[in-house]
Amino acid sequence: MGPPPHGGALVDLRVEPDRAGDLAAVARGLPAWELTRRQRCDLELLATGGFSPLRTFLDRADYEAVCTSMRLVTGELWPIPVTLDLPESVVEAASATGGLTLRARGADVAVLWLQSAWRPDPAAEALAVLGTTDPTHPAAQALLHESHPWYVSGPLEVLELPRHHAFRSLRHTPGDVRALLAQRGWDRVVAFQTRNPMHRAHQELTIRAARELDANLLLHPVVGMTKPGDVDPYVRVRCYQALLPTYPPGTALLSLLPLAMRMAGPREALWHAIIRKNHGATHFIVGRDHAGPGVDRQGRPFYEPYAAQDLVREHESELGIGVVPFRAMVYVEELQQHVPEDEVRPGYHCLRISGTEQRRRLAEGEELPSWFTPPVVAAELRRAFPARSERGARRAGR
Rank of each mutant, 00 (worst) to 15 (best):
G98T: 01
P174L: 12
L46D: 02
V129K: 12
T68L: 13
P3V: 02
G250N: 09
S153V: 01
G224I: 03
T132P: 13
P31N: 09
A47L: 11
W78N: 14
R200Q: 12
L219V: 06
F57N: 13
Q115I: 00
G229N: 13
L205A: 14
A140V: 07
E157F: 00
F284C: 09
V91S: 10
G287W: 00
T36N: 13
D214T: 05
H272K: 04
F192C: 13
M1V: 02
A107H: 11
V66F: 09
R200W: 01
W118Q: 15
P340G: 09
V295C: 15
D134V: 00
R208I: 02
T133P: 07
R188K: 12
S52Y: 03
L100F: 04
E157I: 01
R288C: 05
G347Y: 02
L143V: 01
P228M: 04
P81R: 06
V177D: 13
E76T: 02
P346W: 00
N216A: 11
K227M: 14
A61M: 05
R40D: 09
L100A: 08
R267G: 03
L319A: 12
Q203W: 05
W371H: 11
S147M: 04
L46C: 08
P174Q: 14
D310K: 13
Q337C: 10
R184I: 01
D310M: 07
D42F: 05
R55Q: 12
E366N: 07
E343C: 10
T97D: 01
D232F: 01
V158M: 12
W371L: 12
P249G: 03
E380Q: 05
G50Q: 06
C41N: 12
G280C: 06
L43Q: 12
P174Y: 09
A328D: 02
C350T: 10
A281P: 09
R171Y: 00
E341V: 01
P346S: 07
L30D: 10
R37N: 06
H199E: 11
A191V: 06
F51V: 06
E92Y: 00
A281M: 08
V11L: 08
A191E: 11
S317R: 06
P53K: 06
F385T: 05
G131F: 05
R262C: 05
L130G: 12
E304P: 14
R300V: 12
F57C: 10
G50Y: 01
A128Y: 09
R327Q: 08
V237R: 07
E157S: 15
Q39P: 09
T48S: 15
A20S: 11
H315F: 05
T136V: 12
L335I: 02
V323Y: 05
A210D: 13
V339C: 08
H145E: 15
V237W: 03
A104S: 15
M1H: 10
L253Q: 07
P293Y: 04
P53A: 07
T101M: 02
G397Q: 14
S169G: 03
E343W: 07
A307K: 11
H220I: 00
E204S: 08
L72M: 08
W371S: 14
L102I: 04
T356I: 04
T101F: 01
R208Q: 15
L219S: 11
